[in-house]
Write a protein that binds this DNA or RNA. Sequence first.
DNA 1: GCTAATTTGATAATGATTATCAACTTCAAA
DNA 2: TTTGAAGTTGATAATCATTATCAAATTAGC
Lengths: 144, 144
Amino acid sequence: MLTEKDKRSFQDYLTQKGLKLSGPRMKILEVVLQGTKHLTANEIYGNVQKRYAGIGYATIYRTLRLLCEAGLCMELKCEDGVCRYEHAGDDAHHDHLICTKCGRYVEVVDPEIERLQERLFKVNGFFPQRHRLELYGICRKCKG
Amino acid sequence: MLTEKDKRSFQDYLTQKGLKLSGPRMKILEVVLQGTKHLTANEIYGNVQKRYAGIGYATIYRTLRLLCEAGLCMELKCEDGVCRYEHAGDDAHHDHLICTKCGRYVEVVDPEIERLQERLFKVNGFFPQRHRLELYGICRKCKG
DNA sequence: GCTAATTTGATAATGATTATCAACTTCAAA
DNA sequence: TTTGAAGTTGATAATCATTATCAAATTAGC
């Protein structure tokens, strides 16, 4: 799942910003894009360690920020106070359905809801930037 | 805005839990219910200090938790990683429109959106518990 | 008023994230 | 290919909101 396109995309972003593509950055990009979605920085640190020992915490955080800025990742500020990261891929915006028992994240979109949100912005005289919708419940598996 | 009903409500909650209604708890209840909505614990601490010096940080946090449990307050986990509190009053559930320039919070509800959210839960086999919807944009005043 | 149970304030601890800094890499030009 | 200025790294200290700890002070039912 680590395409040449992604690599180039990261490379381009760095160059454009006058930054450099280092070994650690490349390794982190690889592990993040090949791993599961919705991992914490700590979990990503663990995954990176497994394959490439020696990369520090700070570099994980720094690189995750770069990946977000480059549009390759998205940061979710979760209710437990910890950030989770999902690789953005080419998929459009989506919201999340979150199981409060097992912590599973399901991605959902409802175009109708999106439309009504735009209306709420307009009605209240706000220029829309972004939104966050999280639905908390218990998934079928946990409900038993 | 601190009604007898609120006092009784807090008192009842404490009694029912085998807890006590102390001076500090009463003072914090008063300041919180009379103050603005969407304040941080830190801001509430400041407001309490102004009127009743000597109450410690820990007591603010502890009492805010009790007020939430008693249904007199609600905690909002905000994107900046800080919690804000709003007194629940009798008003129903609502979502928030947040100005990214001035930080203003506007409370909004759209019954249609609420309905569609329920449908999303159902379609995905989730038992619904609660949700969080935050709309970020720039308010008319800041837009100029 | 007495007393057991609860609460308080001060402060240390926690846990995620960010800042610091000397040593190490990168990369474009020579 | 060597070089050196600029950027990066890992270790670790710092930060910041929130919680835990604990001895001293308060509360409420008798």
